[in-house]
Each structure stands twice: as C-alpha cells, then as structure tokens.
Design a protein around this nucleic acid. Structure first.
Lengths: 340, 340
DNA sequence: CTGAAAGCGCTTACAG
DNA sequence: CTGAAAGCGCTTACAG
C-alpha cells in the first residue's frame, strides 16, 4: 500500500483546492464539467478511497442503518431482513445487523454502538423484557427508530407487524371447519405481544365456535423446529387426544410433523397441523404445510421505507401498521381422523 | 433531545481539559482515580455518547469488522456467522454483515463501503467469479482479509474451510460399504472450489472401489432445499435407477428426501441419502439425515480469531487451513434396497 | 497528574 | 466557477 490518498492529494496533483475536488466528486453542478471529469479520472487513477468517517463527522449523516432482531438465523427474520436489505440497497445505505437473542443487555449495547457510530436510524424487533427507556434511547438521541414483528405497549414508535390475533383465528377456524374439536396450541410464549395475541386469537376462535377452551391443550414454549420436534412427545400423550395442532409458527409445525412421523403417525391424515408465517420452506415440507402468510416481505419493505421517508424529512404517521394475514391451505390439514 | 453532549461539555462542566476527560473515560492510569470517577459520573449524568467517528478519524481504528458471504439466510453460513459473532463480541468489535448472492458487483461495493467506513478487517466467502484484484482491494488498502468456506487459487490470503474432497469421500464410501453401486451426486456447481472438490471426492471414492463413474449420474445445480426438492423428479427418472444419492449439502438432501417422499418412496429405506454440513436441522429431519460434519463453528471461530490476532499485530501464517470433516451416520442411509 | 494545541479528512458557508 | 479557512469531536504528543 502506497501513501494514503486523500482529497488534498488529488487537489494538489491537479493544482486545485480541496473544496473543488470535494464538490466535483459529489457531482455538484457548481463545478465545470471538464474540471469534474478531470478530477474523477484522477481519483480513479490514484485509487482514492472516500473517507466516510471524516465526511460524516462534518455532515452528521453516516449512511448507516442498524437492524436488530432476535435471531437472523431464524428464517422468519431472514425473510424480513432480505426485504429490508433490498430496500436499503436502493438508497445506498449500509446496514449493520445484530441478534439480541432476547438479551436486553445485548440489545442495549447494540443501540449504544449504533449511536456511537452515528447511525442514521434503527429498525428493531424488541427483546423480551425491554425497558421502554432502552427502546427510546435511539429517538432520545436523535436517531429515528422503527419496530417490527413485536409491539411494545405505550411506546409512540411506528410499528409494522402482522395481525396475529386475526391470523391465528384463520388457522383455528380452518381446523374447526374440517370437523376438529380437540385442537391443541403448540409453542409460543406469553412474554411477547405476538405470543399473547396468537393465544388469544386461538381462544377467541374456539369460543366463537362454542368449543370449550381447555388450558391443558396448550403446550407453550417451543419456537423452533427442534422445539416442535421435542414437543411431539407431549402432544401425543395428551389425555384429551387432540386431532389437530395449531402451531406457533412454521418451524414448530415442521418440527412437530417430524416428531409425529417418527411416532408412526401420518401428519395431514392422522393429525392435522397448521403453521404460521408461510416461510419459503412451508410449501416443500412433507406434507406441504397449511399455514398463514404473515407478510415478512411486506413488513421489511414497509419498515425500511418508513425509515427512509423519515430520514428524508417526511413525517410518517406513527403508530401500529398491521399487515393482513391470509390462509394458505396445503396438505398438512384434512378432515378429522379419529386416533384409536 | 437536549444539546449534544461532547467531551468538551463534560470538561467545561467540571473545569477540566478535554485531554483529561478523554483519558479518564478510557481508564487511563494517568488520571487520578477520584478525578476519573468524577468524570465518569458526570458523563453518565449528562448522557454522554462517545463519538466513534471522531475518535476513529484520529486513531484510524474503527472497531468495525466486515463479513460478507453468499447468503446469510442459508443456515450453513448462519452457523459460521454465529461463531464469528460470539468471537468478535468478546473483543467488542462491531460487525457489518452482507450477502453478495454471488454478485461480484455487490461484493465489491461492500468492500469499498467497508474501506470508506475505515473497517479494521474483513472476513469473506468470495463470490463466484471474483476477480483476484477485488479480493485484494482490502489488503491493498491496509485492511486485512480472511477467506472462509471457499478457496481462491493463487491468492495469498489466509483461508479457513472444510476438507471437501475428503469429506465427500467419507459419505460416498459409507454408501459403498452399505452395498450401493449406482450412486448419484445431486447438486453443487463447478463454479466454486467447493463444488469442484466435492465432485472430485465422489469420483475418487467410486474409482477406488472399482465402480465406473457415469457422468449422467450427476445432477448439478441444486444448492437449496427447494432445489433438492425439484431435483427429485430428475433423480427418480434416471434410467440407471440409482439406489442412493450423495447430496451437495444438507439442504439439498432434505429437499430431495421430501421430493422422494412425495413420490411415495421412503428415503432411508428405498433410497439412501447423504447430506453435507451437519446443520442443526439434520438430526431432526425425517428420516434423521446421515451427513458429514463440516466444522462451521470451527471455521467461524478460527477465522475470527485469526483476524483478531492479525489486528493485534501477531502474524498468523497465511495459507489454507483445512478443518477435518467427520461422518455422522443416522437414518437416511441403509443397506441397498432394490426398486422395482 | 493536568492542560494547550495540533491534526485526523472531510464539507460548508463565505469571498471573489 | 474556484479557493481560503473554519470546524465536526475526538486523541496524542508535548509541556509543565
């Protein structure tokens, strides 16, 4: 590596001022077009690398946007991130990604780091138990924040997520329509808005159909494939002998189906199973999973757009934006089939 | 948000110089301990946020490390990233993540952005068709680079990956040992070192066992679950009627097994299937997938360590570091079972 | 143990 | 259309 090339190196080599070089490289109409071309050519020749830290120190815009979610390895978040990425790419923003694994500590460290780097904004799916002041840390320091996937009550932050109560009722009603009466709910936690909403939607649907709600038919906890797989044992030994399971999400549903298969039963025939999210994987599972679309691409796209709009100065209405879920009927659900 | 708090705000409020405040906040022994405590307390009270851009402009260390891989939604990379993350977390480095989706363009943009941000180093799994000069762009500008998962010939960059040729021969030999003679290879591409190495390992193992290599038994292309699922049709209609498939990776294997199941055959009994990578998901697939561990956690950990060591000044030996794969025998492979 | 001053590499009024 | 100069918020010699 030769000497570090900076604006002044280019300026001196051309007998111009740094001001002119700076303007030219950013395509300012203030610079004569042949001067501009000469400067750009010289920058290329010298292998000039723009120092964003210096620029951002001066302008206080860094071009950095932070995104923090529970776990990027979870395809649900992966699909959201993909949409955010393609939206941010278009406006040449760099994005910094982090998992918080539901650690409030890790989440706060991330927000602080982002503030230190002069981040322009942040999109987050809040960790379980987040203190409101942690989530407001960004806004309080002039960095706009947008929430996705989970709601935090009492926070005036724009939020984009699916309508969980409604969505899970679609799945539950679908099963009821197929004749199922003993329907378990597998997975999820009351510690998130999503978890509470989905359980509530399931309860509502049963009540509306005149089916008594049996709390023992709830197997809370699992949120992953592994979790669903392990829950199969509990599920299959429930004394009420459910003929169907409404799962917390697709991962749990696929895991549960694997567990059911291992036990020699056929999901979709012996036991009906619904997922939630409609991950890319849902349609190629065996059997293909009946599930509820949860608008990941939409959530990511809208959240990114809202943030970019905010940065551009237009004031989006704050508040909750619910994406409407839709039923996707496939092979994992069918008419009631009595075990025993 | 009140007035922006900076070092000088704290200094003035305490009647000290910025130099003293700066040193105190970084726990310098040069500052008297009660002065230091007073300063730290004041910083906390004022809600001071350290401006890393300003600091890094001065010190030319940013605390940022870039990581770019093909696709973070692919659990193979996800598992590597997790290991990198936990290693970097320990040394308080921020990491910036990006997908290149095998676009050389996107990869170069990422490296340039990282240079502009003053990144301290970069870990990359090179995009297909990367020009060597793109990969050297980082090093040429003083930013150390480490390669993972894929090799680029003729580049003097430290590289960490699994031993593909050896690993795939383990899988192939396992099938041969079970009596299989017509073994297809499903997925992968000759455009990556990994793809070439794995095909070669498969060919070597067959030859060593005295089995003629039939190029028509290769179904190149698939690298995802979806791809494996779709390849099932081709696989099942091969005129040679293979009794087993060596798959490019676990995703392809799981997809292929789903496709085989849909066709009414039982993977693990009618058709033996091996995967590659030993993803977390492999053990809960149905049937549980026989596969080859590919050391994702090891690759991530070692690559991150090597980079941190390099940043700390110790010169790691460059060159290729191969992680030794191991066979994981589960339910998706069994003795030969003739179709028809 | 503490302070005054220069400088990291940009951009932005302000002049001309 | 171009230039001289100040300043973004830190850290680092150098003095004392």
């Amino acid at each position: 590596m030769a000497q570090k090339i900076k604006l002044s190196t280019i300026a001196e080599s051309l007998g111009l001022s740094t001001a002119t070089v700076s303007l030219a490289l950013r395509d300012s109409p203030l610079v004569a077009s042949d001067t501009r071309e000469k400067i750009k050519e010289q920058a290329r020749l010298l292998g000039y690398i723009y120092n964003r830290r210096a620029a951002s120190l001066r302008t206080s815009r860094s071009g950095i946007i932070g995104v923090v979610v529970h776990d990027i390895m979870n395809p649900f978040y992966g699909e959201i991130l993909k949409a955010i990425e393609s939206e941010l790419d278009r406006s040449r923003q760099t994005f910094i990604l982090s998992n918080h694994y539901d650690s409030v500590e890790k989440q706060r460290t991330f927000i602080e780091t982002l503030l230190q780097l002069g981040g322009d904004g942040v999109i987050m799916s809040p960790a379980i138990g987040s203190p409101p002041e942690d989530l407001m840390l960004a806004e309080d320091n002039g960095m706009p924040a947008i929430l996705i996937a989970r709601t935090m009550d009492g926070l005036a932050l724009p939020t984009y997520r699916g309508d969980d109560t409604y969505g899970i009722s679609l799945a539950t009603n679908h099963l009821i329509g197929l004749g199922h009466r003993v329907i378990a709910m597998v997975g999820g936690t009351d510690q998130t808005s999503t978890g509470r909403d989905r359980y509530q939607g399931y309860v509502n649907a049963l009540r509306k159909a005149g089916i008594a709600v049996d709390p023992n038919l709830r197997i809370p906890g699992p949120r992953t494939k592994q979790g669903g797989f392990e829950a199969a044992v509990n599920f299959l030994s429930l004394p009420q002998k459910p003929t169907a399971a409404v799962c917390w999400n697709d991962l749990v549903a696929i895991g549960l189906m694997n567990g059911i298969s291992r036990a020699g039963l056929v999901p979709g025939r012996d036991i009906s199973v619904t997922g939630y999210d409609d991950l890319e994987e849902a349609s190629i599972a065996t059997p293909a999973l009946t599930t509820v679309s949860n608008g990941q691409a939409e959530v990511g796209r809208l959240a990114a757009r809202a943030l970019l709009d905010k940065l551009a100065g237009s004031h989006e209405p704050d508040g909750l934006h619910l994406i409407k879920p839709e039923m996707r009927i496939r092979q994992s659900t069918g008419p009631i089939h009595h075990r025993d």
